[in-house]
Amino acid sequence: MLANYGYNDGSGDFFITIDTDKCMECEDKPCVAACPVEILESFTDDYDDHVVGVVEKHRNKIRYSCAPCKHASEERNIACQKACPFEAIKHSW
């Protein structure tokens, strides 16, 4: 499943896309621990698969929550993407 967490408002589109089919294959889910602001969590979804998603309280503010990994003046170093061994995480902005 491609799960898109985030929002679209007057300032643009801000979505994190997680390919949960890949998460199911990943035992350790290192992205969860790698995130410096604890945006990600592992959980059991509606189909009883163990996957990763964005914590509910961050979904409507991910533009700001993800800011520590998105310095405008430095090379991007997105911790969750870097930690994911399956390239399952994409950011839309």
């Binding site: 499943m1 491609l2 898109n4 929002y7 007057g10 979505f15 409507n60």
Partner: peptide, 12 residues
């Protein structure tokens, strides 16, 4: 009826 992908907007 199994979800393949989803996108939700509930901010606005």
């Amino acid at each position: 009826g199994k979800v393949v992908s989803f996108l939700m907007n509930d901010k606005c």
